[in-house]
């Protein structure tokens, strides 16, 4: 029982300390707070390459979080905020790449590969059958 209470306490304090970071930012309503949190998860830290703004404590991530906070308070939409950052840091800054000429291969490539494979499989299958018929 003691152990259980200990673990519960550890768990509670842990979750508290995780929340702490974003509570430094105040918002007009809960929706904005949620938007802030989800935007920070979708945006990438430009310095640390494979971490989101949310998961990074580097100075530049803090600055960008401050900027996102400011833009939310100014009433900007999620799309406007992402465009704002892409205009400065490039497509790199968002985890989900936008659909444009440079990301075309990324989006369409897999379907082209699938098509090629299906086509080849279909063709080979057909030929096998024909060979079998001839024999």
């Amino acid at each position: 029982m003691k152990k259980l209470i200990f673990f519960l306490l550890v768990f509670i304090f842990n979750s508290l300390s995780c929340e702490e970071g974003n509570d430094l930012y105040s918002f007009n309503n809960d929706i904005d707070y949620e938007r802030f949190n989800s935007l920070n998860k979708e945006l990438r830290c430009p310095k640390c390459q494979s971490s989101s703004l949310d998961g990074s404590n580097s100075p530049i991530s803090k600055d960008l979080k401050n900027q996102v906070h400011k833009l939310i308070l100014e009433g900007k939409t999620d799309d406007e905020i992402k465009s704002y950052l892409i205009a400065r840091y490039g497509d790199y800054i968002v985890y989900e790449p936008r659909f444009n000429s440079t990301t075309l291969v990324l989006w369409v490539g897999p379907f082209i590969f699938l098509f090629i494979v299906l086509f080849a499989a279909f063709y080979l299958n057909m030929r096998k059958r024909k060979d079998a018929e001839v024999k």
Partner: peptide, 13 residues
């Protein structure tokens, strides 16, 4: 000091 112009330049370090 706040890195405002730096953000507009896409600076990260």
């Amino acid at each position: 000091p706040e890195g405002r112009l730096a953000i507009d330049l896409g600076v990260y370090g």
